[in-house]
């Protein structure tokens, strides 16, 4: 029995490795002659920013359940994801579980709008929402951004 399970394990490993290779996974990385950046994005992006502040900020939101905290000021239309002041709101309710939120809106993806704050300071949430939408197969387009 032991011999057979070892053989099966080796066969399974071989098949998985073959699949990974077929999927484009590579075990050895290509190395460049120099590790210095080919392009210094940090420098060039800042140079032309006309004084725009692109500081990346950390959020203080916690993973977990939806927080019942509605926006006190003007409200956004339905099916709108609003990213403002380091918080994410969906249908005007503050969300802390972005994956869960994406799950809820999956069926309404055609009507989804993403609203960002003017200064884009809340980059981490923006990226999280954007990546979650893309991961969920909901195209993130410029038209979604109002």
């Amino acid at each position: 029995m032991k011999g057979r399970s070892t053989t099966q394990f080796i066969a399974l490993a071989a098949v998985l490795i073959s699949v990974l290779i077929l999927c484009g996974f590579s075990f050895s990385e290509v190395k460049l002659k120099s590790n210095r950046p080919l392009i210094d994005l940090q420098e060039t992006v800042k140079e032309s920013s006309f004084g725009d502040d692109d500081t990346m900020t950390e959020t203080d939101t916690k993973e977990g359940e939806e927080v019942d905290e509605t926006l006190s000021e003007e409200t956004e239309p339905v099916n709108t994801i609003l990213i403002r002041e380091q918080n994410v709101y969906y249908n005007n309710i503050r969300q802390t579980d972005i994956s869960g939120m994406i799950g809820k809106i999956r069926g309404q993806s055609e009507d989804i709008s993403v609203v960002l704050t003017d200064d884009y300071a809340d980059y981490k949430n923006y990226k999280a929402v954007r990546d979650a939408l893309i991961e969920a197969g909901i195209p993130f387009t410029e038209e979604m951004m109002k």
Binding site: G24, S26, E29, V30, K31, L32, K33, S34, N35, P37, L38, I39, L41
Partner: peptide
């Protein structure tokens, strides 16, 4: 000019990955 190992020349996909990682460490 830029590859450390010239045997990697035909690995376009992996070269692309290396360029991404070089520009966005």
């Amino acid at each position: 000019k830029q590859l450390l190992d010239q045997n990697d020349k035909n690995r376009s996909q992996d070269i692309a990955r290396a360029i991404i990682r070089n520009i966005l460490p």
